[in-house]
Design a protein around this nucleic acid. Structure first.
Lengths: 205, 205
DNA sequence: ATAGTAGTTGACTAGTCGGTCAAGTTGATT
DNA sequence: AATCAACTTGACCGACTAGTCAACTACTAT
């Protein structure tokens, strides 16, 4: 019944990209509509506010991204290798994004979360949820590494939090310094945070 | 010559606080003027733009904060103790701020930097500078720890970057989860990042 | 064929934004 | 006491903000 439309999908896609490339506050509904080639009236046919669009856009982005995360954190891969692949993946994505836009874009969740956490609780909660999903991958990998005895770590959940903090902070730093190379070698530090056994691993810039 | 005024100082102080509590984009010049009890005309007598005010406000904040940093990172204190005190200091400041405003405010430099880095290069550079100043304290402490042989770390500068990333990321995470307790025990993780020798230190939530 | 609904359109609010300015006031210097 | 620079004031600007709405159109299910 009624006509069909791709406007909603275009809006979700454009909104996520623009907010990631710039920021939530500096991207206007008009900007999003223009880039998506959708009139503002249509925007408000699909979404009841800018905040609701942002939340939907981030949820949609996760839906698309999840299979890749499942692949990276596959049980078929040794747990420490998962973490290394994830670190490398982050670097590659940021490098691509930076080349495309002329500046480092940072973590999409961390950026919007840090920006609006103090004055938009709904968006803050969505970010918290996304963060939680990532933490689950990390915790799972770390506790398996512990079970395998390749890691010396009293609490995998706490370790997952620390790893997540470190990686998110590195992305903030890369964004502020506008230098993607900050993210080049996150792997070894991640390992030293979770207390890998083995021999010493070189920690370089 | 001419009359004197405290308007400039009030504007710097109020601006820093409001931007820290909220965000750069969501705080208007009118907000700042109202809170500082200064008319907008006077604002533009002292500052040529909102961005210039922000930069000046951050510089002024550092000027006030530096003596405390000098004290924390005093050469009179053993290097690893400096780091522990710094970590504790961050927790205390954030706890106070959170109690005052009802939400975790996060790192003032990281928040504004992450928000505007992609569309205001002047502010981005100021944040980069502030970050650099902090890194100098860290690098100095870490290289002294290395010299004292209490730490096993190939490159103090890289280690300082990693520590800074971890702490900044923890502040982002605390802000997004609106939970200051995330910052309660940064010390042990900092030590494991820089490769402290000693026996194992409990890493808890 | 047509009814009915999903989607489109553009003109429209009402408020806010950063920023300007000319005229007025104050107070330290002479 | 007079001067003049430093500071204050409030009205004002045009651009932009998120959001509204009634009229219109196209498509799908019958």
């Amino acid at each position: 019944m009624g006509r069909t439309s791709t406007a909603k999908e275009k809006l979700l896609d454009v909104a996520f990209k623009l907010i990631w490339d710039q920021s939530y506050g500096s991207v206007s509904v008009d900007d999003i509509c223009q880039q998506a080639e959708v009139k503002k009236g249509s925007f408000y046919h699909f979404f009841e506010s800018k905040a609701e669009l942002a939340i939907a856009a981030y949820e949609e982005h996760w839906r698309v991204k999840q299979p890749e995360m499942d692949r990276i954190f596959s049980s078929q891969t040794p747990p420490l290798e998962r973490l290394a692949t994830w670190a490398q993946f982050i670097y590659e994505v940021q490098k691509l994004k930076a080349a495309e836009h002329g500046h480092v874009c940072g973590c999409p969740y961390g950026s919007i979360g840090s920006e609006v956490a103090t004055h938009d609780d709904k968006i803050r909660l969505k970010c918290e949820e996304m963060l939680g999903r990532t933490l689950r991958y990390l915790e799972c990998a770390i506790s398996e590494a512990k079970r395998d005895g390749v890691v010396d770590c009293p609490c995998p959940k706490a370790a997952a939090n620390q790893v997540s903090s470190f990686v998110m902070g590195a992305m903030v730093q890369a964004k502020i310094q506008n230098d993607v190379e900050v993210l080049k070698n996150l792997g070894p530090t991640i390992l030293s945070i979770i207390g890998e056994k083995k021999s010493a691993v070189a920690v370089t810039t």
